[in-house]
Amino acid sequence: MPLVRIPTVLRKHTDGAAKVEADGATVGEVFDQLVARHPGLGDDLFADGQVRGFINVYVDDEDIRYVSGLDTPVEDDTEVAIMPAVAGGAELPSVGR
């Protein structure tokens, strides 16, 4: 079953789980099952049936906007990652040394 990576801010909807399995042949189907099991995710992920603008969704590291959007096909071992958009720049705070 495809594995969906949940960002920290959305884990309140998945009982803290960072990775959740959900079935489907496309990203859209996977998300439908995901939202059916964790209803709180729906409003945070979608607005007007589309993935919200500041959320990026990747299938095997590739942004689905450049594949086939929610129709992007997924396979059993596909990783679907949901990530918040982060502004770039070249800041390098000394964290995690």
Binding site: V9, A18, F54, D61, E62, Y66, P84, V86, G88, G96
Partner: peptide
């Protein structure tokens, strides 16, 4: 890592105005 994204609210995301997403053929993390 999660440390960087952890505190970000999804509503505070940012897509820089300079970026023209139309010019990209793909975007890979």
């Amino acid at each position: 890592g999660d440390l960087v994204y952890g505190l970000r609210n999804l509503d505070e995301g940012y897509v820089p105005e300079v970026l023209d997403q139309e010019v990209l053929d793909s975007r890979i993390k």
